[in-house]
Design a binder for these strands. Structure first.
Lengths: 202, 202
DNA sequence: TCGGATGCAGTGCAGTCGTATTGCAAAAGC
DNA sequence: GCTTTTGCAATACGACTGCACTGCATCCGA
C-alpha cells in the first residue's frame, strides 16, 4: 500500500467542492473541471476518486442526505430527554429549513437535486424511503385521528416553506410564523398535549 | 412584409417543444438542437426566433407562468359566482397541483425552473411578485386573525405537496387528503364560514 | 419587374463536456 | 535494489454546446 491517504476524506473534499459550485451556479454548472478547480485539485484526481460523473453526483447526494439527517439528530439531541411532541417537531422542522445563509446553500443544492432526481427515477428511491420514515415518525407524534394526513401535510408545509425561503418569497420570520400557526392548528384543534410555549425564540 | 407567419405562434411552438424536452430529460438537456429536433424544425429557425438561449428560456418560463395562471382562472370560473371560500381555495390549489400525468409534466418543468431561478436572481423577481399576489388573495379568503400566516402556510403546503407528488412520495389521493385535512383545520378551528362538503370528488 | 425585406436552413468556429489513456513519482513488499 | 502497486497529473479524443455567419427562397411594395 503506497501513499497513505484516506479515500473517504478525499471524496468528501471533492463532494464539498461540488456542493459549493452547485449552490452558487446550479447543478448544471457542475463539471469535473469546475469541481476540481473549486476543490483546488487537478481534474485527474477527481477522476481518480470518481470513475464517472454519475458516481460523483450520487455520492454528493448521499452527503446532502447525511448532512440534513445529522442536522435533525443534533437539533433533537439538544432538546434533552422526552421533549413535548410540539417542541420536538418544531425543532426538527426548523433544523431542516434553510433559515440562515449556510443552510440556504445546502437548501439550494437540495432543491437542485430534487429537480435532478425528478428526471432520474432510479436516484429518487432512497429519497422516497427517507420521506416514508419521516412521515411515519411524525405521524406518531401527532394527536387525533388522521395522523397520517396531518403528518403528510406538515412535512409538505415544511418542504414548501423551504422552497419559498429559497425563492426569497418568505423571510425566515414569516416562515416560522407560518410554521407556528400550523402547529397551533394541529395541537390546539384536536386538544393535543402540546400547548404553544409562551416564548418562541428563533 | 414577406411570408405571412405568426411569430408568436412559432415561439410558443418552440417553447412547447422545450417544455417537452425539459419534462422528460430535465432542463440541462435543453439545447438549441434538442429543442429544434423536438419541435420538428431546424436549429436555424430556433435561432431565428430566439436570438439567444437565455431569451428562449425566459420565454418558456413566461409560458409556464401563463399556463398555470390560466389553470387557476379556469378552475375558479368553473365554480360559478360567489363560491364558498373553502371550495374556491380547494379548487384553486387542486388546479395547481400536479395530479394527473399532463400536469405532472408541467410540474416537472416548473420544478426545474425553480432550481433554475434559485441561481439567477434576476429571473426570480416576477415569480416573487406572482406569489405575493397569491398570498394576498388567499389571505383575504381566510377566516380568523393571522390570515397572512395562514395563507403563507397554505401556499407552502401546496408547494410542498406538489414537490412530493413529483417525487413520487405521495399519491394524488394522499395529497388531496392532506390538503382537505389542512382545510379542515383552517376552517373548523376558527369557526370559519366554510364547512367541509359532504362529498369530495376528485 | 425588380429591389429589398423576411423566413429559414446550413455550416463553421471556439469552447466545454465526460471519459479513456498514458506517464510518472512515491511508497510498500520481495 | 528492484518490482509492483497506488496516487495523481496531463493529454487526447469525440461529442456536444451556443452563437455568428452565409446563402437562398419567398413574398411584398414600388
Amino acid at each position: 500500500m503506497p501513499k497513505k491517504v484516506d479515500p473517504r476524506q478525499r471524496r468528501t473534499l471533492i463532494a464539498d467542492a461540488l456542493m459549493r459550485v452547485a449552490a452558487q451556479q446550479g447543478l448544471e454548472a457542475v463539471s469535473l473541471r469546475h469541481v476540481a478547480a473549486a476543490a483546488g485539485v487537478s481534474a485527474g484526481m477527481v477522476q481518480h476518486y470518481f470513475r464517472t460523473k454519475d458516481e460523483m453526483m450520487a455520492f454528493a447526494l448521499s452527503v446532502v442526505r447525511d448532512r440534513s439527517q445529522a442536522r435533525v439528530t443534533d437539533a433533537v439531541a439538544a432538546l434533552g430527554d422526552r421533549p413535548a411532541p410540539r417542541q420536538l417537531l418544531r425543532a426538527m422542522i426548523a433544523a431542516l429549513l434553510p433559515l440562515d445563509e449556510q443552510s440556504r446553500d445546502d437548501g439550494r443544492v437540495a432543491l437542485a437535486f430534487l429537480a435532478y432526481t425528478a428526471v432520474r427515477p432510479e436516484a429518487a428511491a432512497t429519497l422516497r424511503k427517507d420521506n416514508r420514515q419521516l412521515v411515519d415518525f411524525v405521524a406518531g407524534l401527532l394527536p387525533g385521528p388522521d395522523a397520517d394526513a396531518a403528518a403528510a401535510g406538515l412535512l409538505a408545509l415544511m418542504e414548501g416553506l423551504g422552497v419559498h425561503l429559497l425563492g426569497g418569497n418568505y423571510t425566515p420570520q414569516q416562515a416560522l410564523r407560518a410554521l407556528d400557526h400550523h402547529l397551533d392548528l394541529i395541537f390546539e384543534a384536536t386538544g393535543g398535549a402540546g400547548e404553544r410555549p409562551p416564548v418562541t425564540p428563533t
